[in-house]
């Protein structure tokens, strides 16, 4: 798969798909989507990059090890269930922070951060699996 066309298109495709995965992640609160499916889309993006530039290229582009991404996602997900402790509510009770920024209404919530945690866990874990599978094939 080392054609010039593919190698030229792959970075743009990866960027576009990563952007789309974040869109799917954020719309997941009220509409179809969410952290899991968003994460899978992001992993497909990295896989395309990996096919074009090899596993080493993906690892360079990611900067951190995929397993560390997964672990930080788990940390974020666990942290997002904790705030309700201080408000005398059961675990995972959602907390909202709503404010206006330059006339745009912004609603931040703990379920959103939980979902971002899920996204990162999926991205980290599946990327890690995909990369080690591709690595075996290439050597």
């Amino acid at each position: 798969m080392n054609t010039v066309i593919f190698r030229t298109v792959a970075p743009f495709l990866t960027a576009l798909m990563t952007l789309f995965s974040i869109f799917v992640l954020l719309r997941g609160h009220n509409e179809p989507g969410g952290g899991f499916i968003g994460g899978l889309i992001a992993v497909s993006a990295f896989a395309i990059y990996g096919i074009a530039y090899g596993v080493a290229g993906v690892r360079r582009a990611l900067h951190v090890h995929p397993m560390s991404i997964a672990a930080s996602g788990l940390l974020l997900a666990v942290a997002s269930v904790l705030p309700s402790l201080f408000l005398g509510q059961p675990t995972m009770t959602s907390q909202w922070l709503e404010f206006s920024l330059f006339g745009t209404h912004i609603a931040l919530s703990t379920p959103m951060f939980f979902d971002i945690g899920v996204y990162l866990v999926v991205v980290g874990a599946i990327t890690s699996i995909a990369l080690s599978l591709e690595e075996r094939e290439s050597d």
């Binding site: 560390s68 666990v78 269930v81």
Partner: peptide
């Protein structure tokens, strides 16, 4: 009551510890 949170503490603590150990 805050002490009811003890119920989920074992699972949350192990997840936190696991994530930190993984990083």
């Amino acid at each position: 009551a805050a002490k009811d949170w003890l119920l989920v503490t074992p699972t949350l603590l192990t997840m936190l510890g696991g994530a930190i150990a993984l990083i």
